[in-house]
C-alpha cells in the first residue's frame, strides 16, 4: 500500500447484523469529515456503503452465520477509496435477486465514481469503491 494510503487508512469491523448499519454510517460521516467534503458527497458515500453492507447482511441471513463485515477507507491521490469485505455472503456484495437489491445496486453505481467487484468462489467477497475528492 502506498504511503499516502497508509497514512490515511482507517478500518472498521462490524458483525453482519442490521443493527450495526447505523454505526457504519456514523463512521463514514466521521471519516469523510476529515476531508471536508460537501455534505451531499458525504451522504452519497454513506448511502453507497450502507447499501453494500445491506447486501452482505441479507446474503448471510439465510445461513444464520454471524461473521464480520470489514470496511477499510483510505485516500489515494484524488480519491477516497472504500473497500468492503465479507466472508459469509452467498451473493456478490453488489448483486442480488429482489427489487430492493436492484434499487440498492442502482444507488451504489450512481453515487460512487468507481465501483469494482472482486468475488472469488468460496473466498471473501470484496467491493472497492472510489469517490473523487473535489479540488479546492
Amino acid at each position: 500500500m502506498k504511503d499516502q494510503a497508509k497514512d490515511s487508512l482507517v478500518e472498521l469491523k462490524i458483525p453482519n447484523k442490521p443493527e450495526f448499519l447505523r454505526v457504519v454510517r456514523l463512521f463514514i460521516s466521521g471519516y469523510a469529515s476529515r476531508w471536508q467534503l460537501p455534505v451531499d458527497e458525504v451522504e452519497d458515500i454513506k448511502v453507497a456503503i450502507s447499501e453494500v453492507c445491506n447486501n452482505a447482511i441479507k446474503g448471510s441471513d439465510e445461513s444464520g452465520e454471524i461473521s464480520q463485515i470489514k470496511i477499510k477507507c483510505w485516500q489515494l491521490e484524488d480519491y477516497l477509496v472504500f473497500e468492503i469485505k465479507d466472508k459469509s455472503s452467498k451473493n456478490s456484495l453488489i448483486e442480488g435477486e429482489s427489487e430492493e437489491d436492484g434499487l440498492g445496486m442502482l444507488l451504489i453505481k450512481t453515487l460512487m465514481d468507481e465501483v469494482e467487484v472482486i468475488s472469488d468462489v468460496d473466498k471473501d467477497k470484496k467491493i472497492i469503491m472510489k469517490k473523487k475528492i473535489q479540488p479546492d
Binding site: 447499501e51 427489487e99 434499487l103
Partner: peptide, 12 residues
C-alpha cells in the same frame, strides 16, 4: 433523515 433501498422497497 435517512432511507435505504429496504425502506424504498417498503414504500413500494
Amino acid at each position: 433523515d435517512y432511507i435505504d433501498s429496504t425502506g424504498l422497497g417498503i414504500l413500494i
